[in-house]
């Protein structure tokens, strides 16, 4: 269990940022995984009073507050319309409705969990991470960086894309054995593989007119690992299948 000495309900993002510059501080978002990690910190910084829980739609994008819950993403009607229900489909297997009612999108993105269904989908959609100090950074880049002391305020997703998610799980609410997210934009189709079990990566970009051999080739050059849930060999075997399914789904959308 995580241990803190002080718990600060930040009043402003500036205050939160200032407090977070100490190594002995930690940002509390949904407190789902953080609670379990056995971390010991002097100060926990709570962002829930900062109004970062809104989903805003602009002409060309959705700007999603980092404290927006997964449940809100899943049930937001504008997102649902814009992306053909992919958020609901991608997030529904995550533990349970109560879990998703407090788990946040910012927490998922910051943590860069290998098993994250959220990151896989956002990577496919080429989301931008908006950081308080640094400003906008592509998730593709952010995802590969080490944990830093900046604070995610928003996630930005460009409209006009179609996406699909396919996964294999041990049981319905488990974290995935392998997840593949695909998104189609003007640049073609992007394929993301997550739960390899390492951090999700863009396995292929700008794919068009792909055949099964293409997916097998992509799987062949992607690194997979073993864990409790499956071997690397199994993951490599099913990766082309999931890619083909996700690819087909988002092409047909």
């Amino acid at each position: 269990m995580a241990k803190y000495r002080n718990y600060v309900m930040a009043k402003t993002i500036e205050e939160a940022y200032a407090l977070n510059q100490k190594k002995s501080s930690v940002i509390v978002a949904g407190n789902m995984w953080l609670r379990m990690c056995g971390l010991k910190k002097q100060t926990a910084i709570d962002l829930s009073l900062l109004g970062l829980d809104k989903i805003e739609e602009t002409e060309d994008a959705f700007v999603i507050g980092s404290m927006t819950t997964l449940r809100a993403l899943e049930t937001d009607s504008a997102l649902d319309q814009a992306f053909g229900g992919v958020f609901a489909r991608a997030l529904a297997p995550i533990v349970g409705t109560q879990f998703r009612a407090t788990a946040t999108v910012g927490g998922s993105v910051y943590s860069r969990f290998g098993f994250s269904d959220v990151s896989a989908l956002l990577l496919a959609l080429d989301a931008e991470v908006i950081l308080f100090k640094r400003g906008a950074v592509k998730l593709t880049r952010y995802q590969q960086e080490p944990w830093d002391r900046d604070i995610i305020t928003h996630i930005r997703i460009a409209k006009g894309q179609r996406a699909a998610v396919e996964s294999v799980r041990v049981s319905g609410t488990d974290i995935p054995v392998l997840v593949c997210a695909a998104a189609r934009s003007e640049a073609g189709i992007r394929l993301v593989l997550g739960a390899r079990p390492a951090r999700a990566i863009v396995a292929a970009d700008g794919v068009d007119g792909a055949q099964m051999e293409t997916f097998e080739h992509i799987a062949g050059r992607t690194a997979f690992g073993d864990n409790l849930r499956a071997s690397a060999a199994y993951r490599r075997r099913i990766a082309p299948v999931l890619m083909e399914r996700a690819y087909t789904a988002c092409r047909e959308e």
Binding site: Y7, M9, R35, M36, G96, Q98, A101
Partner: peptide, 29 residues
Amino acid sequence: CETTNCGLCTVHMDGKAVLSCSVPAARCE
């Protein structure tokens, strides 16, 4: 459980079902 999986601790916070094991008490003010 200690891993947010079981749902036994479900309560309502401002009319929404949440896992009370994962809600920081300090946030409930």
